[in-house]
Write a protein that binds this DNA or RNA. Structure first.
Lengths: 342, 342
DNA sequence: GCCGTGAATGAGTACGTTAACATTGTGCCT
DNA sequence: AGGCACAATGTTAACGTACTCATTCACGGC
């Protein structure tokens, strides 16, 4: 039963008390060593570190945060993980949380039934988190009557402006203004819109921006076409638009559809951008398609995620007032926009 | 100071004891209600639920898991969040964790210096997690001397076969066999390889698979070209290969470069697939490029993430033995491969 | 040589929860 | 009517940590 070296079977989690016994010190001294506090002699420190190593000590999170009242973690409720943009947002959330020494505790919410915000909050409330970021693409009315969990600072990633909750989002309305101004600067008035699915909130904000821009210039908006975000659906829309002699530009609600539109127009004998200008949204094709020539708009999704976490953590301080933060997009000018024909 | 309704300022976190006081029951009864345990009268239950609502009770995670010794959470150490494939893996991790009622606690590891595995494990050890999945694209030698934290079931997402740790990965070697067999079936012997950056472990496994497949057929491997995964770098490689009269097929280590290769070949007057066949890896262009014609290989990244979590959780049971799990890829046959010229 | 100073260490306690056990109350069978 | 089963509820203890306070010890100034 005797080994030559330090093979005391830990058999389950090792507490500071056990380390203390082996090192011949008090549990409090082990705590000091574990947290790098001063007033521990070098000799003692080494003895304790050795005992920790030997037993495989792992600090008990529960005990620690029961004492401190803090978890050093931000909650993230995700609705549709694979949706475009989530990776950038996740990156921003992780990055901002990491900057302040926080982990990110994530739960996927799209298991069975379409979950409500209330249900999501309830499920997140029991997790080890100091603040909560909720990313669920819901309709505006689903946000209206939402009441955040008292005592849990909550931020919603949505364009809806909530009265009791800070909301953060890329400016899905402003991106249209950016593109329409750009097109107008090149003399385009008759701009057609190819939207995403009707249930998409982002698409409808982009559509509203398009409508308002046209209205501001006194142009009647033609009935928008709709795709399902894929390049193939964009191709169909482009094919349908190719015969439209009045229009000089197409605004597709994302880049993949814009690419489809461009290909369909060219297949129908209309040159891009000489005959028709095309713009998209997202700048998702960079590095993916060789020689991308699509003028588009880029959202800083990382900034979106960062802002959400920053606000959520600010919200843990008393006296914080909810606000609405919209991350401005930037225009990415390439070669799919030219002067409109007279 | 008296409001007509239930606006007792909670002022900080609310404990079961406080709820108990308001509801006029014992703290244990509150616990029973919170956990949905039986043997509570309907009247009492309602009274407690009301008090919870009124005070904004939020179950204390620390107290609960201090008692139970479990966290119901899986740790995820991520090295390079935005890298291709991570989103699918994250999805799989979240999904598998969610299936067993676990959250996922994530920390991004690429802050300052290139972190070591040991450092990553140390940082994750103090988090509220029952098991750990580590996703860091390191060289094989960085994995060799890794010792997992005792008492913390750990899985590495890597092709390296570790002796004391379960490893999970998509089969980055087998994908080459799949593609080379497919090409060989169409009569291709002289297949050129366009790899990713030299430091990429995935690329080198794919390259090894390509070499071994050629060797098995007695063909000398030409020096591979290298890109940086982007379509533009693929275009350059394609331009360089266009003059190579002997080769009949190109194997690009990812789809974006394959697309660049195809465009460069066509620009140089060589038809694809009639003159040269091209294959890629990842199937990353689906829905992104209209009418994708690229024959490629698809990894089930969600399955990769799922497998990692499943193994990590299995590892919490005694008697578990480490294993190496390789998720097989599937061939996605499109139109960029034709019979080789005689 | 005595006391003050400050470093090193230990003792005691409380954080919020749940499990085990103890107690009370209610209704039913004989 | 007496007792027994079982439902409803309360009491106590323990999980591992870090804070507060107490104690010991060494050293230096006078």
């Amino acid at each position: 039963m005797q080994d030559e070296k330090s093979v005391r079977a830990p058999a389950g989690p090792v507490s500071m008390a056990q380390v203390a016994r082996v090192a011949g010190v008090s549990q409090q001294t082990v705590s000091r060593v574990a947290n790098g506090l001063p007033n521990v002699s070098e000799r003692t420190r080494e003895r304790v570190l050795l005992a920790m190593e030997e037993l495989g000590f792992r600090p008990n999170f529960a005990g620690r945060s029961l004492r401190s009242g803090r978890y050093n973690s931000v909650g993230l409720a995700l609705y549709n993980v694979e949706q475009f943009g989530n990776l950038g947002t996740i990156k921003g959330v992780l990055s901002a949380a990491g900057d302040v020494g926080c982990a990110v505790t994530t739960v996927e919410m799209d298991d069975r039934a379409p979950l409500s915000l209330a249900e999501a909050t309830r499920r997140m409330a029991g997790l080890p988190i100091d603040a909560l970021v909720i990313s669920m693409s819901l309709k505006s009315e689903d946000f209206e009557d939402f009441v955040p969990q008292p005592g849990l600072s909550t931020v919603l990633l949505t364009m809806y402006e909530h009265s009791r909750c800070t909301t953060v989002d890329s400016d899905q309305y402003g991106c249209s203004a950016l593109l329409m101004d750009h097109l107008a600067g090149h003399g385009h008035r008759e701009v057609r819109f190819v939207g995403g699915p009707v249930y998409s909130v982002d698409s409808s904000f982009r559509e509203k921006g398009w409508r308002d821009a046209l209205a501001a210039r006194g142009v009647d908006a033609a009935e928008p076409l709709r795709g399902d975000w894929t390049a193939d659906s964009g191709y169909e829309a482009g094919a349908a638009l190719a015969g439209d002699a009045a229009m000089t530009a197409v605004y597709a609600a994302n880049d993949q559809m814009a690419l489809g539109v461009m290909e369909a127009l060219r297949d129908a004998g209309r040159r891009v951008p000489e005959d028709v200008s095309v713009v998209g949204v997202d700048d998702s094709l960079r590095d993916t398609v060789p020689h991308v020539g699509l003028t588009t708009v880029r959202f800083d999704l990382v900034a979106r995620g960062r802002a959400a976490v920053e606000q959520a953590l600010l919200g843990t301080a008393p006296g914080y007032r909810p606000r609405a933060i919209r991350i401005p997009p930037t225009l990415v000018e390439r070669s799919s926009v030219a002067e409109a024909r007279r």
